[in-house]
Design a protein around this nucleic acid. Structure first.
Length: 295
DNA sequence: AATCCGTGGGG
DNA sequence: TCCCCAAGGAT
């Protein structure tokens, strides 16, 4: 049980302090860290399952075009999906547009600053709500993303990888790591995530550069490889997701509209193409404008 | 709880 | 080449 192997409070405090010092020296100068709550929110949506390097460009464009929630809310959802480009998971653009609409109509155009209000926005889950509260408002919240999960798993549990999805036990444990004050909690959230992203990485971790290598149980145990059940990997080739991606990209690249027949011709398996297009239409990621498909 | 939802780069 | 995985969320 994790509970029996918990680090002492003192040990945790020491590690938190070292990670914080490391962060002060090595933090990346990411643009959304010098931005508004809205800028932070846009970045969090874009960063859901998408690497920082690919988000930088689109984020800049979004912030210039839609510097505040009201600006995005005044557009059609299709404009957001179009501007999403090839970031992937285009429904995130749709949810961000809906969230902007809610903010505009119910929060006077300002990103709300409580966990409950944030969590109620479309596309904002437990992680994103905590991240916005912490990064944008400097609040104290349990921020648990893939980087922090991996870091805590290694340092405290001595294992290479956490479970496929965050467990209640992980959330409880992460709370034990959270410093008491708003300021220190927010600093820890950003610092631990950064360490996970830059040093305690999934593959080829840079353990020699780690500020807490002497306290790491995974290192002490000799870096045992993941032993549990095989980690869940998603199929891709020939899936509906791949097909939807092809169809949506075709529509995205043809603002003048695409006929259904042309769209279906872009995918070899007719039945699958029909099913995928129906899904895109049902999701309102694509609309049928008098026989022409558009965003 | 398990599955679905895009895309591209690094090892 | 192929496989893994990247600041998750919704159903």
């Amino acid at each position: 049980m994790i509970q029996d192997n918990e680090l002492t409070e003192d040990a945790r405090r020491r590690i938190v302090a070292r990670v914080g010092d490391w962060f002060d020296e090595h933090r990346r100068d990411l643009p959304w860290r010098r931005s508004t709550p809205w800028g932070v929110m846009v970045s969090e949506f874009m960063l859901q399952q998408t690497p920082v390097s690919r988000v930088l460009g689109p984020w800049q464009e979004w912030m210039e075009r839609w510097p505040a929630p009201d600006d995005l809310a005044s557009e059609q959802a299709g404009a957001a999906v179009a501007a999403w480009g090839r970031l992937g998971y285009p429904r995130r653009a749709q949810r961000l547009h809906r969230a902007a609409t809610v903010i505009s109509e119910q929060h006077a155009g300002r990103v709300p600053g409580t966990l409950e209000e944030l969590r109620a926005l479309p596309g904002v889950g437990q992680y994103t709500a905590a991240a916005i509260l912490s990064f944008a408002f400097g609040g104290r919240a349990v921020v648990l993303d893939t980087n922090i999960r991996r870091l805590l798993c290694r340092v405290e549990d001595g294992r290479e990888f956490p479970p496929d999805s965050a467990t209640a036990s992980e959330w409880r444990r992460a709370e034990d790591w959270l410093p008491d004050t708003d300021e220190r909690a927010a600093h820890w959230a950003a610092a631990s995530m950064e360490l996970g992203a830059l040093v305690c990485t999934a593959r080829s971790p840079r353990c020699e550069d780690c500020p807490v290598k002497d306290s790491c149980r995974w290192r002490a145990a000799g870096y045992p490889r993941h032993d549990g059940p095989p980690r869940r990997t998603q199929a891709w080739h020939g899936t509906d997701r791949q097909c939807r991606g092809v169809l949506l990209d075709l529509v995205r690249q043809n603002p003048e509209g695409v006929t259904v027949e042309v769209a279906l011709g872009a995918w070899a398996e007719r039945v699958q193409a029909e099913r995928s297009l129906a899904g895109l239409l049902a999701d309102a990621l694509v609309r049928d404008d008098g026989g022409l498909l558009r965003l």
